[in-house]
C-alpha cells in the first residue's frame, strides 16, 4: 500500500479510466437503443378495405395488433386478447395485421393460410385454430406445416383445393408482405405490438391493454 502513495497521479488516472469506460459503455448503449425501432412509431389511423377486423362495425376506437402466428409471445397474449375481443366488442374495432418474423420458419406460411381462409370468409376461425395448435406446427418442416394447415382448413369446412391453391398465390403473398412492410416502415420490430388509434402501446403486462382500451373508450365517448 505505502508504495502506491507516491503514485497518486497513476491512481487518479486509473479510476478516471474506469469511470470513462463505464460512461463509454453507457454511451454505446444509448446510441444502440435510441429511437426504439428506427421508424416514426405512429401508424396511419385509418383502416384498409381488406384489413381483418372484428368487434364494433364502426367506432372511433381502433385497436391494431401486429402479430405472428408462430410467435410464443403472441400465443401468450391470446387469452387476454380474446377476453378483450369479448369485453370491447361493441366499442372497439380490432384489427389483425401480419408481421411474420424470419426466425419462425412457418410463420409466413401460417399468415398465407390465414389469408387463404379469409378468402373463404373464415379469417378469425383459422386465426384461433392456428394459435390453439401453435405447438403442433411451430418449427416443423415447411411441407409438413403446409399439409397441417390444409388439414386445419378442412376442419373448418373450407374448400381445401381452393385453399391450397390460394396459399400459393402471389396476390396473398403480396397482401402479407404489405402488412410486414408497413410494420417495418413505422418501426415495429417484434410481435405482438399493439396500437390504439395509431399510437403504439408500451405494455408491460396484458392488463395494460385493457387499461388502454378503457381509457380509449372513456375519451372516445366523452363530449
Amino acid at each position: 500500500m505505502s508504495t502506491h502513495t507516491s503514485q497518486s497521479g497513476t491512481r487518479v488516472f486509473l479510476w478516471l479510466l474506469g469511470l470513462t469506460l463505464v460512461a463509454l459503455a453507457g454511451f454505446i448503449v444509448y446510441v444502440a437503443t435510441r429511437d426504439g425501432g428506427g421508424g416514426s412509431g405512429t401508424l396511419a389511423p385509418g383502416l384498409k378495405d381488406d384489413d381483418h377486423v372484428r368487434g364494433a362495425s364502426s367506432s372511433a376506437l381502433v385497436f391494431v395488433e401486429y402479430s405472428d402466428f408462430e410467435c410464443p409471445a403472441c400465443l401468450a397474449a391470446q387469452p387476454a386478447l380474446r377476453s378483450l375481443y369479448a369485453e370491447f366488442a361493441s366499442t372497439t374495432i380490432f384489427v389483425y395485421r401480419h408481421l411474420p418474423l424470419s426466425q419462425h420458419k412457418n410463420a409466413e406460411l401460417a399468415a398465407l393460410a390465414s389469408e387463404a381462409a379469409a378468402k373463404q370468409g373464415k379469417f378469425w376461425e383459422i386465426h384461433d385454430a392456428l394459435f390453439d395448435n401453435q405447438r403442433e406446427w411451430a418449427g416443423i418442416p415447411n411441407d409438413q406445416a403446409l399439409s397441417y394447415f390444409v388439414k386445419l382448413a378442412e376442419g373448418l369446412t373450407l374448400e381445401t383445393v381452393r385453399f391450397a391453391a390460394d396459399m400459393e398465390s402471389e396476390e396473398l403473398r403480396a397482401r402479407v408482405k404489405r402488412d410486414a412492410d408497413e410494420a417495418a416502415r413505422i418501426g415495429v420490430r417484434g410481435t405482438p405490438t399493439f396500437y390504439v388509434n395509431g399510437v403504439q402501446l408500451k405494455v408491460k403486462s396484458f392488463d395494460d391493454l385493457r387499461t388502454a382500451l378503457l381509457q380509449g373508450v372513456a375519451t372516445s365517448t366523452a363530449p
Binding site: 469506460l21 437503443t33 426504439g36 420490430r189 417484434g190
Partner: peptide, 22 residues
Amino acid sequence: FLGLIDAGYITVKYYSGGEVSC
C-alpha cells in the same frame, strides 16, 4: 466493458419496450 454494453442494451430495451434486433 463488453458485458456492460451487452447487458445494458437488453436492460434498456426491456424498460423502453422496444424490440431487440436479434
